[in-house]
Design a protein around this nucleic acid. Structure first.
Lengths: 330, 330
DNA sequence: CTGTTAGCGCCTTCAC
DNA sequence: GTGAAGGCGCTAACAG
């Protein structure tokens, strides 16, 4: 492969001149520029990005770290990240944190292979993140709590979301509301549940622990939890599923037991996944500002790269999406 | 940030010794290794990956190029790529080709930032791919035709898949079969349709062009095409949807018109998307070996990296997945 | 076993 | 404008 040296030689100029010409630095005569460009084209020259980055100690790329590249990621969030990154003329690469210490993600974090990183992966330890955070290497973590001077947190206000969902049910006349939870180690789930309880108590409705069922954020889990709820005999008038996937499973369980939604029971989900709109009845749910979160995250990375001072903590509000799965209760 | 020089100095050894120690090259005494490691830890040393890669002219990472990181990608395929890459101790990064010549994907392809690439993106031109392909830089393209000495093609045998689907319908007694197509510029669609026609003619069934309807691989498109099919009056006994998404739309259209699947009409899809199993009736469809395609692609990259000779073209067979949406016709 | 030395390919002063 | 020289941080001969 041709290097810049070859180009310079062929063009009959010094390496530096070739470099200037190739990087359009207005220091070399148009005629020379052309000679250099022609030589480059002729040799099929491509600069070595690594060498260039090494010299400049700047990569112009930021990393988006996900647990699993093949996972059902929040595509809206990724879109936000992607668009803002591109708008700023930076490159974006996604890498996975599967494999822990050995993972690509950790490698990129530690070895200065990127100029900044956005982390949306629960399987990467706080320790590694903190270790990688250093002056001049901005890191934004999404939906996660790490208290460190160099790390910025962006999260969706899940407590407010849980509150919003529950309040909606209450306003629609429901007083007997079950909660199908996510896994117990999920911070998100906990916050949503807090919001749920909060809304109940503010409206003087006593929380009944027998109406909390353990799910795991999967369709299957929602199905099982709902089956248990049904088996238990005493049905509430509404169910708050901690995410849409589980609501889908729940819907199936209700269908199988000839319990109509929303006539017999109202249900509300959380996430506003794409499918929510298409199922029957369409699912009332809570929309998380995922696009905005992603866009904000990158924006913050750039601000820091420009050495601007930024807040270290951001909380984004959710929004109720009313569809057909909740009905007024008299 | 501390460099290897600092570590060497603190440990009281030469830079090279420090390098050997840090890379466990059995050339330096255990005692020295320990001294070096301690020094590294104390200084919080992290090697500069770029410098190391530059020197070795090897990055140990391969790129997976997708059109859009936020897109609904074939997660099985990505999983195949991911797992095999990891097993071989390489890193994997995903990058997008949005932005054409300016995209991250093109940059990584051209600037030797990775050791090999797998391309699953239709919006990147053949020209760019061919230009980037060079001795020692393996590229595998998925579901795409490029004839070039340095480029390897892996594709699913869509013709065989179309044949398989159609043959199944025929074996179940269907003779009047409609085809809801993908977009006309889709190579995949064309192949599936060829397989469809091929199966018909092999069983002496005349292809009727009035039973071909234009869809576009989306749910909405499948819905519209099916509505047209219904409106046309004369219903076939079975419909072959060129993909599952369209079949979903079609199912909805049939439901709305009180046409029961599979009692009144049988339908078969293509892709075996996750949802196919969950809808009612569950969808009989054609499974594409996506995981295998991804795994094979990486495998081929490694083979080439080891300078082994490999075939330049691979075609993977599909498989029929029988569920409930096709019924025997007497 | 350890240290010296010479680059990897590029960019950037700094003289001319 | 142009060119020579130095170095980014690291690795890999090659001597000792």
């Amino acid at each position: 492969m041709a290097t810049i040296k070859d180009v310079a030689k062929l063009a009959g100029v010094a390496v530096s001149t070739a470099s200037y010409a190739l990087n359009n630095i207005k220091k070399v005569s148009p005629a020379t520029v052309k000679r250099v460009q022609d030589a480059a084209r002729e040799l099929n020259y491509q600069k070595n990005g690594l060498a260039s980055d090494l010299k400049r100690t700047k990569t112009n790329t930021i990393a988006l770290i996900l647990k699993d590249l093949s996972g059902p990621y929040y595509s809206e969030l990724i879109k936000g990240v992607q668009e803002v990154t591109m708008t700023n003329g930076f490159d974006l690469i996604a890498c996975s944190s599967i494999g822990g210490e050995q993972s690509t993600a950790v490698k990129f974090l530690k070895e200065k292979r990127v100029d900044g990183a956005i982390i949306l992966a629960q399987n990467i330890t706080d320790e590694i993140i903190i270790e990688s955070a250093r002056e001049g290497f901005p890191i934004v973590v999404l939906d996660r709590n790490i208290d460190n001077e160099h790390i910025i947190q962006v999260e969706v206000d899940n407590m407010q979301g849980g509150y919003l969902a529950t309040e909606h049910l209450i306003k629609m006349g429901h007083k007997e509301i079950a909660y199908i939870s996510g896994p117990y180690n999920s911070h998100d789930n906990e916050m949503r549940f807090d919001g749920f309880q909060h809304a109940l108590s503010e409206h003087d409705i006593r929380y009944q622990s027998r109406w909390k069922f353990a799910g795991d954020f999967t369709r299957e889990g929602g199905y099982r939890a709902t089956k248990m709820l049904i088996a238990q005999g005493n049905l509430p008038t509404a169910v708050f599923f901690a995410n849409d996937e589980m609501a889908l499973g729940g819907l199936q369980a209700f269908n199988e037991n000839k319990i109509s939604v929303p006539e017999d029971i109202s249900i509300i989900g959380y996430d506003d996944i794409q499918l929510s709109e298409y199922i029957s009845p369409s699912l009332t749910t809570i929309r998380q500002p995922k696009y905005e979160a992603g866009a904000l995250a990158v924006h913050l990375i750039f601000q820091q790269l420009l050495l601007e001072k930024v807040e270290r903590y951001y909380k984004l509000p959710t929004e109720l999406v009313e569809r057909k799965s909740v009905e007024k209760q008299y």
